[in-house]
């Protein structure tokens, strides 16, 4: 597995619209590289015959009934948005000018 480099972190940050400084990019690239290495050692330990684990506890069928519960108002929903218009989230142009 290739280590995570700074460029990849910068690309992800851009996709996720997370503003990151140069220092933060350096630090995050290092931290993610450590995580990737840790995952790699798990992958080495688990053979092809071991299915991917999604949960350490053997729980199944955790479900709720189809009953309306907690709802936010539109104002509350938009309160954390960087920008909004017409009661909706406003996002930058999705496609670059071509």
């Amino acid at each position: 597995m290739a280590a995570i480099n700074r460029e990849q972190v910068a690309h992800l940050a851009q996709l996720a619209h997370i503003e990151m400084s140069d220092d933060e990019l350096d630090r995050m690239a290092n931290e993610l590289a450590v995580i990737v290495d840790s995952v790699k050692s798990v992958s080495e330990a688990a053979g092809a015959d071991v299915p991917a684990t999604s949960h350490p506890i053997p729980l199944t069928n955790v479900m709720r009934e189809d009953v309306v519960g907690h709802v936010l108002t539109a104002e509350e929903a938009l309160s954390g948005a960087p920008d909004s218009a017409d009661g909706r989230f406003k996002v930058p142009a999705i496609l670059e000018e071509s």
């Binding site: 709720r64 189809d66 009953v67 309306v68 519960g69 907690h70 709802v71 936010l72 108002t73 539109a74 929903a77 938009l78 017409d86 009661g87 909706r88 989230f89």
Partner: peptide
């Protein structure tokens, strides 16, 4: 269904935008 797949927010068509959401849908 009356509610969403993974949250208890209402599944209703045509309401005021962003009024049928909660933290999970967002």
């Amino acid at each position: 269904t009356k509610t969403k797949m993974f949250s208890s927010a209402p599944n209703v068509f045509g309401d005021q935008p962003n009024s049928n959401v909660n933290e999970v849908c967002l």
